[in-house]
């Protein structure tokens, strides 16, 4: 655990688009989820296919894009983008999949 970053684990097609499974977002204290995801898209622009553009993520009262789960300590977070995330935490960003 690094207390100056948030560790994002990307899964499934999001990992494939980003080209890596682990992304570390600089953070001091805490940030809203919207900022964390906008920074992720800034670092991995291909992730916008699932997460949308940073400007949209940062809009007030925004929601997670459809079909994306954000998991913290084994619990899926509510869809609200204002959810605070603390430095040192790990989030799993999981697009729902439909392979049958």
């Amino acid at each position: 655990m690094n207390d100056s970053t948030i560790h994002l684990k990307l899964t499934g097609p999001l990992e494939r688009l980003a080209g890596r499974a682990d992304v570390y977002i600089p953070c001091v204290g805490e940030s809203p989820l919207s900022t964390v995801l906008a920074q992720l898209v800034g670092e991995c622009p291909q992730a916008s296919r699932y997460l949308g553009e940073p400007a949209d993520l940062l809009k007030p009262e925004g929601c997670l894009p459809p079909g994306v789960l954000v998991i913290r300590q084994g619990v899926a977070l509510p869809a609200r983008l204002e959810t605070p995330v603390s430095a040192g935490e790990q989030l799993t960003i999981m697009p729902m999949i439909s392979g049958g």
Partner: peptide, 16 residues
């Protein structure tokens, strides 16, 4: 609640 609408990113063909 998990998938409100068809996600933009999903493609018909997937590796498996």
């Amino acid at each position: 609640e998990l998938v409100p609408e068809v996600p933009a990113g999903w493609q018909r063909r997937f590796p498996v």
